[in-house]
């Protein structure tokens, strides 16, 4: 079993309201994002740059807007009546809120894993193949290959390779969540959004998901919402702290947990409230 080690030795503090690196543009760049549910103003002027192939954690008390922000990255908020976004969210320099953006294409590039594992009532194989099928792939051999690769990447292959035809609902909660990750990986996204992916899982299943996140960041840009401070500290490179719809502090994870700039951040991460 691999253990998670945090490599914080070569990180350095930066002023994080600025783009983290002038040479490498950020993968996701949010500028002046405001969000409304009807008349409720739930995100206030969020500015956040997320670097490529790193794990960025969004933390904060319930209702602080972190999930709303996450869901606005692949425009999953579109399906909520009365929801309205203002501001710019650029992914690779392209504003996702542009009227010309095809959300179907956007969501294939920006995969998502939800809090409650939500496999389809289909077989394990068909769950992973779903995104490929709607994408128009019919070639059986390449389908098999991608399904296997995705399940391997989600660290589930060894457990299910002999029963790919079995129903996904027969899997345990942790396996179901890894299946959902495999399903998201199968369409080959560049960004993976995770909305409290381990909050409904036991500690062992949680550890597996965390190990997985650690491995996935070699290939994917990951944004994770979590309520679990230790989890944020363990898996993420950078952490953003949200409070009442505002971004309070965004920095290297080490800085947020060891030496935060704001008193509010320190109170939250040390468990004094929230």
């Amino acid at each position: 079993m691999t253990t998670i080690t945090m490599d914080l030795s070569n990180t350095r503090s930066r002023d994080l309201q600025l783009p983290p690196d002038a040479v490498v543009p950020p993968k996701i760049d949010a500028r002046g994002v405001n969000f409304f549910y009807g008349t409720a103003h739930v995100l206030h002027d969020i500015n956040l740059s997320i670097p490529e192939k790193q794990v960025t954690a969004l933390i904060g008390p319930s209702g602080c807007g972190k999930s709303t922000f996450l869901r606005s990255l692949n425009r999953m908020n579109d399906i909520i009546p009365g929801a309205r976004a203002e501001g710019v969210i650029e992914i690779d320099g392209r504003n996702v809120n542009d009227p010309g953006v095809d959300v179907v294409q956007l969501r294939r590039r920006v995969g998502m894993v939800f809090q409650k594992s939500n496999p389809f009532p289909k077989s394990i194989y068909e769950n992973v193949a779903y995104g490929l099928r709607i994408g128009g792939l019919h070639h059986r051999a390449s389908m098999d290959e991608i399904v296997e690769k995705s399940l391997r990447r989600a660290a589930l292959w060894e457990e299910v390779k002999d029963r790919l035809g079995a129903s996904a609902s027969a899997l345990s909660g942790g396996q179901q969540q890894r299946l959902c990750i495999a399903r998201a990986l199968a369409v080959n996204p560049e960004i993976l959004l995770m909305d409290e992916p381990a909050s409904a899982l036991d500690p062992i299943a949680t550890q597996k998901i965390e190990e997985l996140i650690y491995e996935l960041k070699d290939n994917y840009t990951i944004v994770i919402v979590t309520h679990n401070m230790q989890q944020a500290a363990r898996v993420s490179d950078r952490t953003a702290f949200f409070m009442l719809g505002r971004l309070v502090e965004y920095s290297e994870t080490k800085t947020i947990f060891m030496n935060p700039r704001e008193q509010m951040t320190e109170d939250y991460v040390t468990g004094r409230f929230g």
Binding site: M76, G111, K122, I134, A184
Partner: peptide, 27 residues
């Protein structure tokens, strides 16, 4: 049919009709 399954399908880049035809109607 749980709304989470519709969400999962939409998040994979399915259109509304694909979600209905492949997830909602079979379930």
């Amino acid at each position: 049919v749980p709304p989470e399954q519709r969400e999962a399908s939409l998040a994979l880049g399915a259109t509304r009709w694909e979600t209905i035809r492949r997830i909602v109607l079979p379930a």
